[in-house]
Every structure is written in C-alpha cells, then in structure tokens.
Design a protein around this nucleic acid. Sequence first.
DNA 1: AAGGGATGTGAAAACGTTTTCATAAGCAGC
DNA 2: GCTGCTTATGAAAACGTTTTCACATCCCTT
Lengths: 327, 327
Amino acid sequence: MAVGIRDVARAAGVSTATVSRALGKGPVSDALREQVEAAVRATGYRPNLSARRLRSQSAQTIGLIVADIRNPFFTAVSRAVEDAAYRAGMRLILCNTGEDAEREALYLRLMQEERVTGVVFAPTRRTAERLRPEDFPFPLVLIDRTGPPGGHDGVVLDNVAAGALLVDHLVEQGFSRIGGLFGSTSSTAEERRDGYLSAMRRHGLAPQVRTVLPEAEPAEGEVARWLAEADRPEALVLSNGLILMGAVRAARAAGIPWPGGIALAGFDNEPWTDLVEPGLTVIEQPVTEIGAQAMDLLFDRLKHPDQPVRKVVLSGRLIARGSTARR
Amino acid sequence: MAVGIRDVARAAGVSTATVSRALGKGPVSDALREQVEAAVRATGYRPNLSARRLRSQSAQTIGLIVADIRNPFFTAVSRAVEDAAYRAGMRLILCNTGEDAEREALYLRLMQEERVTGVVFAPTRRTAERLRPEDFPFPLVLIDRTGPPGGHDGVVLDNVAAGALLVDHLVEQGFSRIGGLFGSTSSTAEERRDGYLSAMRRHGLAPQVRTVLPEAEPAEGEVARWLAEADRPEALVLSNGLILMGAVRAARAAGIPWPGGIALAGFDNEPWTDLVEPGLTVIEQPVTEIGAQAMDLLFDRLKHPDQPVRKVVLSGRLIARGSTARR
DNA sequence: AAGGGATGTGAAAACGTTTTCATAAGCAGC
DNA sequence: GCTGCTTATGAAAACGTTTTCACATCCCTT
C-alpha cells in the first residue's frame, strides 16, 4: 500500500540512491532522471518527510508562537510569516499561548523536539527576560515584544515614540487630562507606557496610568469603571487593538460620546477603526512588514550564525481621525 | 552536542529500549524509571520527533487549510482547532491558499508527505467537487464549504436556511427590493444564494443576484457601482463578513446611510458589526463550535474508519440590529 | 518440586530516507 | 596505452527513535 523510495527504484530499474538524487539535486543523467520521474508518476510515490528530516537533519519548518491568533495584529503577522515560509519551501507550525508563561515554555520545548529551522516568537515580558540564546539550537526571532536587549534578533515598533506620538497629538488637539490604559503582560505595553509618561512629563501634565490584561473584555470593564469616576480623564490612550475595542464598547455602553465625552486614541489600524463614527485615531503598525522582516532576520541568521544581534525598529504611523478632534 | 536516547541509556545504565519505554507508556520498574528520568534531566535530552514519527508511523499532526487566516471566520475556527489539537497532544500546520485551487492541491500533497494524522479543510467549490476520499490516507474533514454531498465528513452552517432567514427578516421589516451579493468561489456562498432565491420566490419578490470575489475590496467596488445605479435595491444581503465590510465601506463612501438609504444584512457576527452605528444585522455562526466539531469528527473517524460519512449542520442565529430597522 | 503465566529487560531489527564510500566508465594529457 | 581526473551509479551505512523478539526472573498453581 504505502509506496516508498524502494518501490520507485525497483520500478525505474535503478538504486534508491539514484531516485533520491533524481528527486533532489544530485547529479543524475537525463535518461535516468526521466525514468525515475516516470516511475514516480506510475507508482504515485510521495516522499516521507519525517524520514527525510531525520536523515538530512533539516526540518524545513518554522514555528510561530503568539499569544492568540485572534488578535488581528498577530493574524496579519502570521499571514506574512506563512507566506515567507512557504516561499522558502518551509511549513509553519502555529502555537497560541494565551499569554501563559507555562504554555510558552511548553511550546519552546516542542520546537526543540521538532528540531525546527527557526522560530518567530512574541513572548510575554516574563518569558522574554529569561530567554537565553544558548538554550536554543535554532534562530529565535522576537516580534512585537523583545523586552530588554538580549541575545535574540527582533522586530519591533518604536513603541516609546508611538506612545509619545499619541500624547503629543492629544495635547495638540487641546486635551490635557489624558489617561493611559496599558496591557499588563508584554514589554511592548510597558514601552508604550514609558512613551506616554515621558511625553506627559514633557508637556507638564499629570499622567494617570492603569493596567489591564490585554484583552477586550477586561479592558471594557476597567474603562467602564474609570469613566464612571467623578474626575475621569478627557482623553484615553489605549495600548493595543483589543484594549481599544474594550474602551469603545465601554464608552458606547455608558452613552459617552467621543470625542465629546471622552477622546480615544489607540494602537492598530484595524479595519473597523474607521467604520465606527467618528473614526478612531490610531497608530498603524506595518504588520506585513513586521512578519516579512522577522523572516528575513531569521534566514540571515541561518546564513551567518555569528553575525551580531540585530534589532529592527519600525516606526508607527499616526492616523488622526475624529475620535480626537479638537476640543 | 546533540544528545540522543543512547546517551540517556548510557547515563542511566540501561538499554535504549528501556529509556523509550520509561518515557512512553511501556512497563518499566519504578526504580529504573527514576534512573531514566534522572538521566534525562542530567543530559538535557529532547526526543527527536522526526525519528519518533518515522518509527511509530504516527505524526501526531493536524493540517489546517483555509483560504486566508485573516478572514475572521477562519481565525476563530483556527483557534478552536488548535486548542483541540494541542489538547490531544498534536501540532497544527497552518496553510493559506488564497482561494487558489493550485495552492490547495499543493498543500494537500504536502499533507500526504507529512503523513499527517488528519486535515481540516475549507476548500473552494472547484476543489471540493474533485475531492475523492480514496486519494487520502488520512481523515479529511471539510468545514464551512462541503460542496455536493461527497465522501468526507464535514461541519457546515445551514446556509440555505440562513440565507432565507435574512430575506424573511428584511421582508418582515418592510423591504421588498432586496439584492444579494455572494462570493464566487465557495459552495457556501452558493447555498446562501439558493436560500436567498427561494425565500425571495416564496415572498413573490424579484431577486437581484450579483457575484464577487469574497474579499472586502472587490465587494466594495461592486457595491459602489450597484448603489450608483438608478434602480438600486432598498436592501442588500451580503454573503460573508468581508463582503459585508466592503458594502459598509461603499455605503459610507457614497454617503448613503443605513437603513435609510440602503438596509444591510450579512454574515458573521464579528466584533465590529455592533460598533458601527447603527449596528449591522447579521447571521452569527458558531465559530468555536465549528472548529471543535470538526476535530471531534476527525478523531471519531480515526477511531471508526468505516463509520458512515457524517455531516454536522449547525444553525446560524439571526442577530437583528439597526441596519435593517423597519422602513 | 515442576509447570506456566506474568512481568521486566536488552539486543537487534525496523521505519524511509539521504549520504558516504567505493567503483566503473569516460575522457584528457602524456 | 597508461595515468589521473571527473562523472554517474549502486551498496551499504547512517539518522534517532520504537517495536519485536527472546530471555530471565518472579510468583502462583498444581
């Protein structure tokens, strides 16, 4: 039933070595190559990738580890990563960690057992701190969240600048009591908060920072409470797309209009952010570029293992919409 | 450098067979099992999954093939599939086909070479028609689009009923000149169109059907043209989330309000559909359920290969919102 | 005390490839 | 015509596991 390379060899009247070479790139005479190809067609042979990997010690596989593929940022990045992977003849193994350090460790171990070619990883802050390059026999490229400068290549947004950009924009639009709600698990959120804080300080304004699990529901709850307080801010900076959505829901539920009741500015130019009325001011991340760059770094690292560690920092673009219209 | 099972065996003073059994489920005395575990810790041993797969002839891997992971429907389904896979100790290989029959064929071939345990697949109509169960040595479960009854298990929405449901709702709300815009590549879109057509006929109304590539941009262009026509419909049925978004953009761009200028009703209860104002009437698909059911079918099929083919049909739920408010 | 079924263990085969190694054939230079 | 170099090919080793098979050992039954 299961046809192997021996069957093809027999059908073509050659050795298995020749079949292997004909299918790969070895030197084979044209005549035999044709015989082999005919035999492959005749037998319906499909190579066994596990055997190939075992023998050739090359998995041709990329692992992608993210918190949740349903976060549109990761969705978009994953598509770019998958495209690059398959263009290079590699498969993609997808892992969702749910921001859970234990599952992160589990999946990293799995990647070792798979002997993957490389991994693209968006770690939680906690895990990012513990990541030691010498523990991994493959290139590990961090995206979105690199944490403190470590031994891994990475692609990130200039989060500090982006956080500040939002504050500057809000100040310019006439707001001064500006709150910030940031995710609690990633270094990215921390950097955005730092940018927020330094910009607030620079403008001589009093920051109000809160922290929340970076998901829509917790964010909605937190913002709902915040908006119900007597001295609520005039404007809110939200540190990612899910938190921004939570904030929009909370404002909508409380019947507070934006920008009149509360100005909103956040991250991730998701398709819906310009469909709500008024549209939401956001920092757009170059998502496709991030995924593509990560794969470039990964392949470069494979070629030049001893090259110094590189960190690609991409700029976010401010898209000003009605949600932060001048007071 | 690379530590294998032989090194562990040597360190523990046992045979490789015993190590394998200690790590698996074979019968091993408690004393030896502890020795082996200690040796594993001491050596930092990580099993080589390729070797394991080759020998045990079991890949413990699920393939997921969809048009585009960025379609929120597939995003959500993929998450459910991944969860189920990893709960069963399996990995997930992700493939995006971009609705391209050639890439579908390519990936199906790849799945054979990977000797995967099973595949969850949302095929284009063209491919669905050609799918022959005997060509696949693994269970292939179709989701979202099963096409004509074939030899594969599947999980689908009751698309005909759902399409009709939207028409019934629109009629009830007082609309009669109702157009329908449907995707051109999937059997799902066809079924929704059939539901639309039969409901229109039942109500004695004249259907107006158009077809478009199931992506936001082509849909926006098509709807823009449609809305510019003199005898444009009063209401539109849109056959998936991306097409619905295109329609919303077109209406917004043309300055046509809904439901006043054009009533909108579509598929997929994506998070943004109730954030636009007024909210959009949609059919909600049980996305998580679809993914989970697909994996259930897959595992059942592995257990009972000769069981008759099963097709799970799930009902969509109508969520009526302002976009179809009474005329 | 002998027979017999569990039970635990190790040696070696097996999984399906690629790669190494040896060899034969072809060809250039002398 | 011989040597040396390249090229095409096959036999066999190798990749790192799991599984088969054979063999002790132990305990229970008779």
